[in-house]
Design a protein around this nucleic acid. Sequence first.
DNA 1: AACGTGACTGCCC
DNA 2: CGGGCAGCCACGT
Length: 103
Amino acid sequence: MSDNFFDLVYKVVAQVPEGKVTTYGAVARFLGNPRGSRAVGWAMRQCGRSDIPCHRVINSDGNVGGYGAEGVARKALLLRKEGVKVRNGKIDLSRFEFKRLRL
DNA sequence: AACGTGACTGCCC
DNA sequence: CGGGCAGCCACGT
């Protein structure tokens, strides 16, 4: 199981503290795939299978992104609840991006 | 083994 | 500033 990219992404995202967010590109780069942002997004797509805080993973533009307006709304709501200031579905990465990623 | 798909990113116009 | 195109990675069939 740990051999799958999915599990790796899952662990990293699970270590992201509240009030902080990360981007697909950041995780992909941390895993050694600077261009694997899509693979990370693909893994997040399966977030419903585990307790992955997928709402803490956003786009590199600071945009919450998401799998639909409803998903974005839910993510933005949760993030806001954790202390992340979401403005118009946009987040200030300079202030909330968690760069100390770790397994 | 190959094709298609997907919650992305960066560059160009 | 906004929209469009191409490139990458991993998984399922």
